[in-house]
Design a protein around this nucleic acid. Structure first.
Ligand SMILES: Nc1ccn([C@H]2C[C@H](O)[C@@H](COP(=O)(O)OP(=O)(O)OP(=O)(O)O)O2)c(=O)n1
Ligand SMILES: [Mg+2]
Length: 1134
DNA sequence: ATCCTCCCCTAC
DNA sequence: TAAGGTAGGGGAGGAT
C-alpha cells in the first residue's frame, strides 16, 4: 500500500531536508494522529495553474502525461497513514509528488477527516466545480464530494482540472463555453453517494434545452493545444476526455536536471496515446493538466535543441555566448522591432505635435517618410517639420463636443506587406515567420508573427508556433519578415493619419488611435460629398482607408467611436478591410456577447480571475455585477475600468506626449551559459546595448533593475521552444545607478558593473540562467546629469517633481557617492535577548535577509560552520510558518514561475543533511545581535565591499573578522568576485532602512494581535516557531470567548502568506491547520459539523464553539484558495 | 497617507 | 533551426 509512494517517490531518500524539529514533529504527530483517520483521496489532479499565454503557446504542451502513475500511487496510498508520519514530514524527495498528495490529503483530512471515519471514496479522481445556485447547496455538495474522496474545485479555472461541472441552470453563454465539459446535475452526486457507488454521469447530464455534452469525449488531443488563450482555457476544462497515461513520471521535479525526457513530445497526437487507467476510467485527468504540473510540465525538451546544444561549437556560435549574439538576435527579433518602432513613433508624433503647436502651420504637410529616409534606420524626427491640421491636442479643445476617435489598424500587417512582394499568394493561408519553406518541417517552433485571414480561418493565430499552425493547416504558406518595409509603410500610414488628426496616439507600427473630432465636424459641413451621407465620421474613415491603401497597398480597418475602448471594439467589427462606427446606443448589443478579454487591457489572466471570482467572463453577465464586486475581484483599477467599459464609458484621453520613464534591454532567448565569465561578459554587452539606447535619446539614469529568468528546477534543461527560456523562476533587484561621481549615468561600464553586481549577489548557477534584463529608470537628460548636482542633494524641501526624487538620501548622506550610504547601525540595545521580547520587539528572531536576497558570494565565502548554521536557520525558517519570511524585507520577494510564486529558494540552498537541529540550540541565531560597539556604518561596509545586509546577519565575532579582513584586502588587491564578501548591490539603494541591520528585531513579528490567554494580552509566535503552542494558547485562552475576527484575519493572512512563501510553508501550514483542527475538536468537536444556520437558540458554549469552527473554515477556505492557486502554478507549469 | 520595491499584466 | 522585446499601468505590502 505504502509502496507506491515510496518507490516512485523515493521519498525518504530526500536529503534536501533532514529530520524536522522534533518538537514540531511531535506536535504534528499529535495533531495528526489523534483520530484523524486520514482518508487520502486519490485523485491526481491538478492544480490549476496560471500560465501566461505566451507560455502556453510553448509547443508541446503536449505533455506526455504520466499523471496516471501518480494518481495511481496516490490511490494506493490512500489509507496509508504513513503519509502523514512525522518521519515523512521533513522529507522532500519527490516533494512534488508529496506536495500534491498532501494537498489532496489536506483536503481529505480537514474536510472529510472530520468526524467521518472512512467514507467510501466513490468520487475519488473526480474534480468537481459547482456552478451557480444548486439545489443541494454548494456547501452540502462540497461536503458530499469531499467526504467521498472527490475534489471540490471552488473555481473553474481554465487551468484547474475540473472533471465535471455540477449545475442546475446554465446561461446560454456557458452552455456554449462549456459545451465540451461534463455538465451534470447535482443528483448525480447525491444518488451516487446514496448508492455507495459512482453512477455513470451520463445518466445525469444536465440539459438546459438540448445539447450540453455533444462531443464529450471526442476531442482529439490537439484541440488542447491551441495557443489561443481562450481555446486553451476551454480545452483546459475539458481535460477528462483523455484517459490518463501510465507512462512513467519523467523525472523528479526537484531534481536539478530533471525532466529532459519525452522526446516525442512535439506531437500532441502522439501524446494522446494514453492507456486507460482503471482507477480513473471515467474521468481521467487530462494530460493537459498533467502538462501543468511542474514535474511533467513542458519537460518536453526540444529534441533538436538538445542535440544541437550538445555540440560545443554550435553553442559557441549560436547561443548567448556567441560574440555577436545580441546583435544578431535583435536584428531578427520582431518583438524588438515592434517595441523600438513604437517608441520611435511616439517620439515622432510628439515632436510633430510640438512643431505644430509652436509653429504656425495648421496642416500636416511634412512627410514622415522623408524623415525615415534621411534618418537612416531611425525615424529621425528632425525633419518632422510637419504639422498636423488642427492639432492642438484635443484636450483643451474640450468643447462639449463628443469626441470622435478612430482606431486605425492594418489588417494582418506583416502578411499584407509581405504579400506586396508575393502577390501570387493572395487568397491563400499565409503567415510570416522565420522558418521558411520546408525548414523546420512540421516541427518548427518558429512563431507566426502574422497570419492572413485565410490562415485564420483554420484557427491560426498570431503568436502561434509554425508547427501548431501547420497542424491546423498543412498547406500553410510562409513568407519572410521584411522589417524595413514595415517601417516604411508605417511612416506613410502615420503621415496620412497626421493630415486628419487632431491628435494621435501611436499604438504600434501598424496601429494608431486618432482623434478626428474637428476633422469630422468639418466634413459634416458638406454632407453631399460624403460616402456616407449620414455618417461623416465613417466617411472620413473610408477616405483615410483609401489614402492608406493608395499609399501603402495595404488595407487598414478603422473602428470609430466616441472613446478609445469603443473604437477598438469597433475595429473588431470593421476587420477585415472595413470601417465601423460603434455608437453608444449599440453598445449593449455589441458588447454583450463579447468576453472580458476582448476589451483592450484585459487579457488572459484577468479573464481567468473573472471566471474564478465572478463566475463569468462574458460582458453581458459581468454587466450585472456591481462596481464594487468587479473591483473586489479584479482590483480597483481594473474593476472600474471594466465597469465603465461595459457601459461604453472610457474617459481616457489619447496619450501622445508622455515622457519616457525607462529604457531597457531584455533577452530571454538563447541564453545559455557555462560559467560566470560568460554570463558576466554578456551582462556587460547588454549594458552596452542599454547605454547605446540611453545615449540615443540623450538620457541617463539613476536607477537600475536587473531581471533574471532562471530555469525552473522542474523544467527540462532545454525548453520545448527551440532556444527558448522555458519555464522559469524570475527575480529582480533594483539598485541605485550612478557613475563614480554619483551622477546619473549612461556609461556602459557603470551599468555593467551594477548589473553584474546584482546578478552575482544571487549566486545563481550560470548554467541555469535563461533570461536577462537590464532596465534603467529615473531618467534625466544627459545634459541635466552633467550639470545637475550629484546625488540630487537633498533639498530642504522636496522637489515636488516626479523624476527628480531624492528618496534614497537621508539627511547626512550627501556624499558624492550615493551608493555609499551611511546608516546608523541602527538601534541600540544590542544585547536584546530573545527571551525578553517585549511588545515593541517581541521576536528575537534575527533579521535575516530573505533568502533570495542573500548574496551568494558572501554566503559561499563564509566559514563552513557559519554557513551551515545560516543554512540551518534558513531551513528552519522555511519550515516554520511563523518564522518564515514575515520579516523585514522582501516578504514579497518571490520567485515566480510564470506568474506563480514559487519561492523555493530555501529548498535550493537547503542543507544536504540537517540532523535535527533545534532552533533553540542554534547558537548563531538564538540571539546574535549586533553589539553596539560593533557598529560600522553601512557606508563603510560598502566601501569595504561588504554587504550590510549580510553583515548584519553575521555573529559579532564574524563581523569583526570580516571587517578586518575586508580592510586588509582593501589595501592589497583582491580578486573580483572571489573576495570574502562582496557587496550586494541591492543594498546601495534605499533599502538600508529597509532592514535596520544589526538589530535582531523581527520586523513585524508574527503575532496574533490582541491575543493572549486573556483577551487583550498579546500573544506572539515565538522564535521557536512552535506554532502549535501559540495556537493552543490562543484557543485555550478563548475557550470562553469566540475568537476575535481580527485574530482570525491575522492568522489567516499569516498562513496564506506562508503558503505563498515557499514550498515548505505549505507543509507547515497544513500541519498548523491540523493542529488547530485537533484543538477545536477537543473543545468543541460536537459542533464541528454544525452549520451556522441552525445556530440560534444555542447555548453560549455552543455559539462559541461554532464561532471557532466558523473561523477555522474561514481560514481554511482562504488557505485552500491560495494553495490551489499556488500549487497549480507550481505544479502545472505546463 | 504616501513612497518604494518587486513583481504581475497587457499589448503590439 | 530561431531570433520569447519592452514600456507602462497597477497592486501588495513594508517603510516612513
Ligand atoms: N504576437 C504577435 C502579434 C503581432 N505581431 C506583429 C505582426 C502583426 O502583423 C503586427 C500587428 O499586430 P496586430 O495585432 O495588429 O495583428 P495583425 O495586423 O497581423 O492582424 P489584425 O490587425 O488584422 O488582426 O504585429 C507579432 O509579431 N506577434
Ligand atoms: Mg493589425
Amino acid at each position: 500500500m505504502a509502496k507506491p509512494l515510496q518507490s516512485s517517490a523515493s521519498t525518504d531518500s530526500s536529503d534536501l531536508f533532514g529530520p524536522d524539529d522534533p518538537e514540531f514533529l511531535e506536535a504534528l504527530r499529535n495533531a495528526v494522529l489523534p483520530g484523524d483517520q486520514i482518508t487520502a483521496p486519490p485523485s491526481d489532479t491538478e492544480l490549476p495553474s496560471r500560465k501566461r499565454p505566451r507560455d502556453e503557446s510553448d509547443e508541446q504542451q503536449v505533455e506526455t502525461t504520466s499523471h496516471g502513475v501518480l494518481a495511481h500511487e496516490l490511490g494506493n496510498t490512500e489509507d496509508d497513514p504513513e503519509i502523514y508520519g512525522a518521519s515523512r514530514f521533513g522529507h522532500f524527495g519527490e516533494y512534488m509528488h508529496r506536495k500534491r498528495a498532501k494537498l489532496q490529503i489536506q483536503n481529505a483530512t480537514l474536510d472529510v477527516g472530520q468526524g467521518a471515519g472512512t467514507t467510501k471514496k466513490i468520487f475519488s479522481g473526480l474534480s468537481i466545480y459547482i456552478n451557480g445556485w444548486t439545489n443541494p447547496s454548494v456547501q452540502d455538495l462540497r461536503q458530499l464530494i469531499v467526504a467521498h474522496g472527490g475534489v471540490f474545485q471552488p473555481y473553474l479555472d481554465k487551468k484547474s482540472l475540473v472533471t465535471h461541472i455540477i449545475t442546475c441552470s446554465l446561461t446560454a453563454a456557458k452552455i456554449k463555453d462549456w459545451k465540451h465539459m461534463k455538465i451534470v446535475r447535482p443528483d448525480w452526486l447525491v444518488d451516487s453517494a446514496a448508492a455507495g457507488t459512482l453512477i455513470p454521469w451520463r445518466n445525469y447530464i444536465f440539459k438546459p434545452g438540448a445539447r450540453v455534452e455533444q462531443s464529450q469525449g471526442a476531442h482529439t488531443p490537439q484541440s488542447h493545444l491551441s495557443s489561443d488563450s481562450r481555446t486553451a482555457e476551454r480545452s483546459g476544462m475539458r481535460k477528462h476526455e483523455q484517459p490518463p497515461s501510465n507512462k512513467q513520471v519523467p523525472a523528479t521535479p526537484d531534481s536539478g536536471t530533471a525532466g529532459t525526457t519525452a522526446p516525442e513530445a512535439v506531437d500532441p497526437a502522439s501524446s494522446a496515446s494514453y492507456s486507460p487507467r482503471p482507477l480513473y476510467v471515467t474521468d481521467p485527468s487530462t494530460y493537459k493538466d498533467a502538462a501543468r504540473v511542474p514535474g511533467y510540465a513542458a519537460h518536453t525538451s526540444n529534441p533538436l535543441a538538445e542535440r544541437v546544444m550538445a555540440d560545443p561549437e554550435w553553442r559557441a556560435a549560436h547561443t548567448s555566448v556567441a560574440p555577436d549574439f545580441i546583435e544578431g538576435f535583435y536584428k531578427h527579433s520582431r518583438l524588438h522591432y515592434l517595441s523600438t518602432w513604437k517608441a520611435e513613433l511616439k517620439s515622432l508624433v510628439q515632436q510633430a505635435q510640438e512643431e505644430v503647436e509652436n509653429g504656425s502651420t495648421h496642416e500636416f504637410t511634412g512627410d514622415l517618410q522623408d524623415m525615415a529616409k534621411s534618418g537612416d534606420a531611425n525615424m529621425s524626427v528632425a525633419q518632422l517639420a510637419a504639422r498636423s491640421p488642427s492639432k492642438r491636442k484635443g484636450k483643451e479643445k474640450a468643447s462639449g463636443l463628443k469626441r470622435v476617435i478612430m482606431h486605425c489598424d492594418f489588417d494582418c500587417f506583416f502578411v499584407s506587406v509581405g504579400l506586396l512582394s508575393h502577390p501570387e499568394l493572395r487568397g491563400k493561408p499565409v503567415v510570416v515567420c522565420h522558418s521558411q519553406g520546408s525548414t523546420g518541417g512540421a516541427s518548427s517552433t518558429s512563431e507566426i508573427a502574422s497570419s492572413s485571414y485565410e490562415a485564420r480561418s483554420f484557427g491560426i493565430k498570431n503568436g502561434m508556433s509554425l508547427q501548431q499552425g501547420r497542424k491546423l493547416c498543412p498547406e500553410l504558406m510562409t513568407i519572410p519578415y521584411e522589417f524595413e518595409k514595415y517601417k516604411q509603410l508605417s511612416l506613410r500610414f502615420y503621415t496620412i493619419l497626421m493630415r486628419h488628426a487632431d491628435d494621435i496616439q501611436a499604438v504600434s507600427v501598424d496601429e494608431a488611435l486618432v482623434e478626428v473630432t474637428t476633422s469630422v465636424s468639418r466634413c459634416a459641413i458638406r454632407p453631399s460629398s460624403l460616402a456616407f451621407a449620414d455618417d461623416p465620421a465613417r466617411s472620413l474613415a473610408e477616405q483615410i482607408r483609401s489614402e492608406v491603401r493608395e499609399g501603402t497597398g495595404c488595407e487598414v480597418s478603422i473602428g470609430i467611436a466616441e472613446n478609445i475602448q469603443l473604437a477598438r471594439i469597433a475595429t473588431r467589427k470593421a476587420k477585415p478591410a472595413g470601417s465601423f462606427h460603434l455608437k453608444l446606443e449599440d453598445v449593449p448589443q455589441v458588447l454583450a456577447p463579447l468576453d472580458i478579454d476582448d476589451l483592450h487591457g484585459f487579457g488572459h489572466s484577468t479573464r481567468q480571475k473573472a471566471n474564478e471570482k465572478l463566475g463569468a467572463t462574458n460582458l453581458g453577465e459581468l454587466a450585472k455585477k456591481s462596481k464594487a464586486t468587479l473591483c473586489d475581484a479584479l482590483g480597483k483599477s481594473a474593476g472600474e475600468t471594466l465597469y465603465n467599459a461595459i457601459r461604453g464609458i472610457d474617459e481616457r484621453k489619447l496619450e501622445s506626449d508622455k515622457p519616457r520613464k525607462s529604457v531597457s534591454c531584455d533577452i530571454n532567448y538563447g541564453i545559455r551559459f557555462e560559467n560566470d565569465d560568460q554570463s558576466k561578459a554578456f551582462i556587460y554587452q547588454m549594458a552596452e546595448e542599454v547605454s547605446r539606447r540611453l545615449n540615443a535619446i540623450n538620457m541617463c539614469g539613476r536607477s537600475l533593475t536587473l531581471k533574471i529568468m532562471k530555469r525552473d528546477p522542474s523544467a527540462p534543461v532545454e525548453a520545448p521552444k527551440f532556444m527558448g527560456h522555458g519555464i522559469c523562476e524570475t527575480f529582480s533587484k533594483q539598485t541605485i545607478l550612478s557613475s563614480a561621481n554619483g551622477r546619473a549615468t549612461s556609461d556602459p561600464k557603470d551599468i555593467g558593473d551594477h548589473a553584474w553586481e546584482l546578478l552575482a549577489s544571487w549566486g545563481f548557477d550560470p548554467k541555469e540562467l535563461r533570461g536577462i534584463g537590464i532596465q534603467i529608470q529615473k531618467l534625466d537628460t544627459s545634459s541635466a546629469s552633467d550639470t545637475t548636482d550629484p546625488g540630487q542633494v537633498k533639498l530642504p524641501f522636496r522637489a515636488r517633481s516626479s523624476k527628480t526624487t531624492v528618496q534614497e538620501d537621508t539627511g547626512q548622506d550627501v556624499l558624492p557617492v550615493p551608493r555609499i550610504i551611511t546608516e546608523p547601525p541602527s538601534q541600540e540595545d544590542p544585547l536584546q535577548n530573545e527571551n525578553e521580547a517585549g511588545p515593541s520587539r517581541p521576536s528575537p528572531t534575527i533579521d535575516l535577509p530573505s533568502f533570495s536576497q542573500v548574496d551568494k558570494n558572501i554566503f559561499d565565502a563564509l566559514p563552513d560552520d557559519v554557513r551551515k548554521e545560516l543554512e540551518v536557520e534558513y531551513q528552519r525558517r522555511s519550515r516554520s510558518p511563523m518564522l518564515a519570511e514575515q520579516p523585514s524585507h522582501d516578504v514579497r520577494s518571490k520567485i515566480t514561475v510564470k506568474g506563480v510564486n514559487v519561492k523555493r529558494i530555501t529548498q535550493q540552498l537547503a542543507p544536504k543533511n540537517r540532523t535535527s537541529v533545534s532552533p533553540r540550540k542554534n547558537t548563531l541565531f538564538a540571539k546574535r545581535d549586533v553589539p553596539s560597539y560593533m557598529r560600522v556604518s553601512d557606508a563603510e561596509l560598502r566601501k569595504l565591499d561588504i554587504d550590510p545586509d549580510v553583515f548584519a546577519a553575521l555573529p559579532v565575532d564574524l563581523q569583526r573578522e570580516q571587517v578586518i579582513m575586508a580592510r586588509h584586502a582593501k589595501s592589497g588587491n583582491l580578486l573580483q568576485e572571489r573576495k570574502i564578501i562582496k557587496a550586494s548591490s541591492r543594498a546601495p539603494s534605499a533599502p538600508y532602512r529597509k532592514k535596520p541591520p544589526p538589530q535582531a528585531k523581527h520586523p513585524e513579528p508574527p503575532l496574533l494581535k490582541q491575543q493572549g490567554k486573556q483577551p487583550g494580552e498579546k500573544l506572539y509566535f515565538t522564535e521557536t516557531g512552535d506554532v502549535q503552542t501559540v495556537i493552543e494558547s490562543w484557543v485555550k485562552g478563548f475557550t470562553e470567548y469566540p475568537p476575535k475576527q481580527k485574530d482570525v484575519d491575522y492568522f489567516s493572512k499569516f498562513l496564506v502568506r506562508n503558503v505563498e512563501s515557499d514550498d515548505t510553508g505549505m507543509e507547515k501550514t497544513i500541519a498548523v491547520m491540523k493542529w488547530w483542527l485537533v484543538l477545536l475538536r477537543r473543545n468543541w468537536g460536537v459542533y464541528e459539523r454544525a452549520s451556522s444556520a441552525e445556530e440560534n437558540g444555542s447555548s453560549t458554549v455552543e455559539s462559541i464553539g461554532r464561532a471557532w469552527w466558523k473561523s477555522f473554515w474561514e481560514v481554511k477556505a482562504k488557505v485552500d484558495t491560495i494553495a490551489r492557486r499556488r500549487f497549480g502554478g507550481t505544479l502545472s507549469l505546463k
